[in-house]
């Protein structure tokens, strides 16, 4: 296994480079090489099975291509991208996707953080709570979307409960005003557990000594949270936010089942449009161009959010 091949390689490098330079520099160089060797198996694998398909997609975005046609893609330059500029549906899909991410992300992260803090204590039955809150993440998106489809229906659970408070029936998924919010609510529910678990793991990575030292200095609970928990949680918070941006901006399966992009295009996300373009209209060139514009935006917003979370780099 590749795992076992790393240490001998690492030590031999150390031996080879170990003679001449002074200690700090030698160690620096040795760590460089070892770092690369640690990364190498993963990098090679990702390069082959993730990066190559992405590059292939990038190439396709400059072509006219359908797998149904014999012969390869026809190069069309920037035509697909130019087409997107004048496509009102794509513009609308970008707005819908942006709204979706901006609705789901802050609410999920905030609630997940509170929950993570609540279940990060050793009390009887904590495992049950963690599991209960994590359950939505386990069940396949398709199955839970179908349950929510029914909950939102005219005589479904949501209306039944609201009727108890005197509200009239609403057609949550059929009204352009409420459809995206209804889908967002489901996605918040679905994403809560995974975010909580990640933040929980982040909390666990904060050394206990820091809290002990803080208490010795007489810090209160808020001060401990503000000056130890939050900074310590920052790397995981960055991960959670970036991961949520990437996953949420590719929202598709829940939309497919709940609304099929409607009503009046109010829930047509970019990925829904991409899927339709590629697999319904067999136009892979245009679908790829859509994907790479989305890609640029995802990367842009991820970098922005990382910047704002991390503040100045150390």
């Amino acid at each position: 296994m590749s795992v076992n091949s790393v240490p001998p390689a690492a030590t031999s490098t150390v031996a080879a480079g170990g003679a001449r330079p002074p200690l700090p520099r030698r160690r620096w160089k040795r760590q460089h090489v070892v770092g690369m060797l640690f990364v190498l198996p993963a990098a090679l694998y990702v390069l082959t099975f993730q990066f190559v398909p992405v590059i292939y997609g990038l190439v396709l975005s400059f072509t006219d291509y359908t797998p149904l046609r014999r012969g390869g893609p026809d190069f069309v330059g920037l035509e697909n991208y130019a087409g997107l500029l004048t496509d009102p549906e794509y513009g609308n899909a970008l707005l819908v996707t942006g709204r979706y991410v901006l609705t789901v992300l802050p609410i999920t992260v905030a609630i997940a953080l509170i929950l993570a803090l609540l279940v990060n204590r050793p009390f009887r039955g904590v495992g049950i709570f963690r599991s209960a809150l994590y359950l939505p993440h386990i069940v396949s998106l398709t199955s839970v979307s179908l349950v929510w489809l029914w909950m939102y229906s005219q005589n479904g659970l949501v209306n039944e409960v609201l009727n108890l408070f005197g509200a009239t029936d609403q057609l949550w998924l059929l009204d352009p005003e409420s459809a995206l919010n209804a889908a967002s609510a489901m996605r918040i529910w679905k994403a809560l557990g995974s975010n909580m678990v990640l933040l929980l793991a982040g909390l666990q990575s904060i050394p206990n000594e820091l809290y002990e030292a803080g208490r010795v200095d007489g810090a209160g609970r808020w001060a401990l949270f503000r000056y130890i928990t939050l900074p310590g949680l920052r790397p995981m918070l960055v991960y959670v936010v970036v991961m949520d941006i990437i996953y949420l901006s590719q929202g598709f399966a829940e939309i497919f089942i709940l609304t099929r992009g409607g009503p009046l295009g109010s829930t047509t996300t970019v990925n829904y449009l991409i899927y339709t373009e590629a697999f319904q209209y067999n136009d892979f060139g245009s679908a790829s161009a859509m994907a790479f514009v989305l890609f640029a935006l995802i990367i842009g917003f991820s970098v922005l959010s990382v910047r704002s979370l991390v503040g100045r780099q150390k």
Binding site: I246, I274, A278
Partner: peptide, 11 residues
């Protein structure tokens, strides 16, 4: 490596 995840599977 991370950025490869920002491309939808359809592509």
């Amino acid at each position: 490596i991370i950025s490869t995840t920002a491309i939808p599977v359809s592509v």
